[in-house]
Amino acid sequence: MHSMFNGDFGIILVNIFLLAMLFAAAVAIARMRSLFAIVMLSGIYSLVSAAWYVAVDAVDVAFTEAAVGAGMSTVVLLGAMLLTSRTAKPEKPFSRLGPFLVCLATGAALIYATVDLPALGDATSAANTGVGYTYLQVAWFDTAIPNVVTPVLASYRGFDTLGETTVVFTAGLAVALLLGFGERSLAERIRNEGRSGDERRSKKASAASDEDPS
């Protein structure tokens, strides 16, 4: 099923190449100071990771990554850049030693935790003994979808997924209705009110300066 695990050397090379590009993009994002370049690179990072998820047969995760990472998060980050400055403040090297040590310790703990994980394809692991094994047996005959995760999400738990989608859509719709878009948006109204207030104040000031000499 997974040609990657059948000793297909080329696909492994593609995976390594994609992961190397992910690493390079992550290092560049950490090193750069131009926020626009960082937003662009994070879009590239999401695209590469989505391509990598497809290469390892996790198509549903890849869809989510492409839609959220490459699509929405670029929009959100650009919107945040409209409100803030364009470049990050330069930092002194080694000024963030404490967070670095925390990250290092967390990473070491996670790597230590992988020792306890069952081996890939282990028949006695917890995921393969219970209901998961049943899904592996019947999923193909029920749905004819090669990836087992997809029928579990979209078929066996279809109503659950539909409910989640409804909740997220309703929340997004409520936020959009509250904030609005374009000229009727909250930001635009605040801007207009601030400007009309300024004009009124300046009119008052000019009126006062007109009255003063008379």
């Binding site: 879009g43 492409a66 490459a70 699509g71 929009v75």
Partner: peptide
């Protein structure tokens, strides 16, 4: 099919930029 959908998603960020 997935690749074609990615092409659609790619437009979102371009239009945002």
């Amino acid at each position: 099919d997935i690749a074609i959908t990615y092409a659609l998603i790619n437009f979102v960020s371009t239009i945002a930029i």
